[in-house]
Amino acid sequence: MARSGQAMSDGEGTVAGADDAAADDALLVLTAMLLTPSRFPSVLGDDYVAACDALALEPYEEGYGLILGQDSAGARWTVVVEDTSQVAVAIAAWDCGMEHDLSPDERSMVCALPGWPMDLAVSAPGVPDPHDPDTDGEGPAPLAPPDAEAWGPAQRRLGADEIAAQWSAWREQIDDTLFPLPGTTGEPGSDAEGQVANDAEADADARDGTGADQENDPSSFPRHPGVRRALSEATAYTKTPPPPGRIRSSYASADVRTLRVDGPGWSMVARTDDIALFLLDEEPGTVIPVGRGTSLPGLLTALDGLAAQGL
């Protein structure tokens, strides 16, 4: 594969130059990403198995590398390779602003899929503008990014990824006074839709018709029914582990991890030492915070213990 120039992971950055001698079947590499249980493009699915299924790949534990680029005619291609180590090294170099030639051995290639699963902010110079290749109706339909003007599972997961990547900026927008400390009383403000209820309300909400105390169930605290459902399903993960990649954990600081958890219709972003933020299919573009309270810390710790661990 010919490299078109310096690229950045996740489709960001600029292209520095082109290989003038690129052969007709060469791929001008623009960016690359990993498809592994701990790190995969969320646009493809809620978990690693679903992401592989979206590309008609077997969900092998070792995972794959995805290389996005253009051929000499400008057509968009996504090349799947088995050499995840080489792809990971290239991504790390690009993220540090370094040039790195990504040219996997052809024996590592699994398949070449038409199109790109997400939009890229770059294109290869010296070739026509990016477009889907003409496959004469043979093979799979070209991959395409989700509609940026719509809201659905893919957009919800991409939104959660953005929050995870920019946690500090999003966290600064959350008013901590919305989350009463354990042991306090009083009615919270009406605009605190995603808050943890105070102890008195939690005690009342946490009892079912038989009077059984469920105060350790985090889903009994938030008022939004979608968040209650999401927390209930996340709690169920700790009893019956979900498919690989449904829970992902990445480094945040020395003793803190960032959690990304997905489920049917919901996505959660959390720091193990802080609050959780939820996005729901039924609430387009809305971020709903849930305070730590007495139960969330234990849930986050349990989820982190089950997570596919990234860097």
Rank of each mutant, 00 (worst) to 15 (best):
A2G: 15
R3F: 09
A7H: 04
S9E: 07
E12K: 06
G13W: 10
A26V: 11
L30S: 06
R39G: 10
V43G: 05
L44W: 04
V49R: 02
A51R: 03
A54E: 03
A56K: 03
A56W: 01
E58H: 12
P59E: 00
G65S: 01
I67A: 00
A75T: 01
E82C: 02
D83I: 01
D83A: 02
Q86L: 01
W94E: 01
D101C: 07
R107E: 14
R107C: 09
V110A: 05
C111N: 09
A112D: 04
L113W: 04
L113G: 05
M118V: 04
D119R: 11
L120H: 00
V122T: 05
A124L: 04
V127M: 01
G139K: 02
P140E: 01
P142S: 05
P145Q: 07
P146L: 14
W151N: 13
G159H: 12
A164R: 07
I174S: 00
P180A: 02
T184F: 03
E187P: 00
A192R: 01
E193T: 06
Q195H: 14
A206N: 13
A206W: 11
A206I: 08
P222G: 14
P225D: 07
E233H: 10
Y237L: 14
P241Q: 03
I247G: 05
S249I: 15
A252L: 08
D255C: 12
R260Y: 08
A270W: 05
L280A: 11
L280C: 08
T286H: 12
T286N: 09
V287I: 11
I288S: 10
S295G: 10
P297C: 11
L299C: 03
T301Y: 14
L311W: 15
